[in-house]
Amino acid sequence: MAISYSWTHNFSADALKTLFLSVDWESGNYPEKVQQAMLNSHRVYSVWNGNELVGLINSMTDTVLTVYFQYLLVHPDYQGHGLGKNLIKGMLEEYKDIPRKILISVETKVGFYENCGFTHHMDKAPMFVSTL
């Protein structure tokens, strides 16, 4: 594996579609919208195997108090090798001066995020209005 990391907002719609659908995310069916979402993100940190996009994390922030990590995904063929942890580590370093870092996790992945330093707050609930 020729793994490398990159700070970029520019991805082809096809690369995003392949990555998002590899983890069964519905948004992969809207690759042009995902592409625009990456362009509109504050930062995007991605991981590559050569020219193949195999993972990414993006952020939205007010640049002062709060940063929200919206997407973190790693292609299943590359999971279990620390790539996701490295993506989070890069983002946490990038936003080390911002005191509140937020993400929403599916219940089965809470342990992963706790191992990365996040705290599961049982007294808070994510809320959504979504058409996806």
Rank of each mutant, 00 (worst) to 15 (best):
L39Y: 08
L72M: 11
N29P: 05
L83P: 01
S27N: 10
Y95H: 10
F20N: 06
N29C: 10
M91G: 00
S59A: 14
L53R: 05
I3L: 15
L103Q: 02
L92I: 04
S130W: 03
K85D: 04
E52R: 11
G55I: 02
H9P: 04
D97K: 13
L72A: 05
E26P: 04
S46A: 14
H120M: 03
R43G: 01
Y95K: 04
E32K: 14
L21I: 14
M91C: 04
M127L: 14
P126K: 10
H121K: 15
L39F: 07
H120P: 00
E93G: 00
F112D: 02
M38R: 05
M127A: 12
H81Y: 12
H42P: 00
E93S: 06
F11T: 09
G117N: 06
V106I: 09
D77I: 11
E94D: 09
G82A: 06
L72R: 03
R100Y: 13
A37F: 01
H81W: 06
A13R: 03
D62V: 07
S6G: 03
D14W: 00
H120Y: 14
K96H: 15
E94Y: 08
L132P: 09
N49I: 01
I88D: 00
M122K: 11
L83I: 14
L73Q: 12
K109C: 00
F11K: 05
P126D: 11
H120K: 11
K101L: 07
W48V: 03
K17V: 04
D123F: 12
V129E: 05
E114Y: 05
G117Q: 06
H42L: 03
S22G: 06
W48L: 04
K33M: 11
F128W: 12
Y30K: 15
I88M: 08
F11W: 03
W48N: 07
L87W: 00
N115F: 01
D14T: 14
D14G: 08
A15V: 06
E93K: 11
K96T: 13
V54T: 06
I98R: 12
H121G: 08
L72N: 04
Y68W: 13
L92F: 01
M91D: 00
F128S: 13
K17Q: 15
G55D: 03
S59M: 04
Y30T: 14
T18I: 13
V67L: 09
S4L: 04
Y113S: 04
D97C: 05
F112Q: 01
L65E: 08
F11G: 06
T18R: 11
N51A: 08
M1Y: 09
H42Y: 08
I98S: 12
H75C: 09
S27I: 12
Q79Y: 02
I98W: 11
L87M: 03
G28K: 03
A2Q: 15
K85V: 02
G50N: 13
G80Y: 06
F128N: 10
